[in-house]
Design a protein around this nucleic acid. Structure first.
Length: 111
DNA sequence: GCCGTGACGAAAT
DNA sequence: TATTTCGCCACGG
């Protein structure tokens, strides 16, 4: 059983804190956890989120609100439907009103 | 230990 | 605004 690095777990924990109907970004998580690795490693960490049922990876998008990881949900429309089911409108693979929907841990958790 | 890859980000064009 | 270029660094081969 390959145990991922500790920061993998930390990333999952932060993602679980994302409220329903909100989204966050890889970069925000990386900055909140002070990951030198950068935003890319957050995405890499999400790659192992399939083993973590309580990790709403569909609420994690890139800096411009694009659903870059939608293809990893077993289909090109799964992620979008999950978001819309939570009240997050998605159009052209982008979160509508992304700037308002953004949930930044460093801000919402009161850094 | 080097090399290619990647669910990213920011700046330049 | 879309595309390109570069920087970032962990992981697998």
């Amino acid at each position: 059983m390959p145990e991922q690095r500790d920061y993998f777990q930390e990333v999952y924990e932060v993602v679980r804190l994302v409220p329903k109907g909100r989204v966050t970004t890889y970069g925000s998580i990386a900055r909140y956890l002070s990951l030198r690795a950068g935003a890319r490693m957050v995405g890499w960490a999400m790659n192992g989120s399939h083993s973590h049922p309580d990790v709403p990876a569909h609420r994690v998008v890139n800096s411009v609100g694009v659903l870059t990881g939608k293809h990893f949900f077993g289909g090109p429309t799964i992620m979008q439907q999950l978001l819309e089911d939570e009240g997050v409108k998605v159009e052209d693979d982008r979160v509508v009103d992304f700037k308002t929907r953004l949930w930044d841990p460093s801000t919402e958790l009161g850094l």
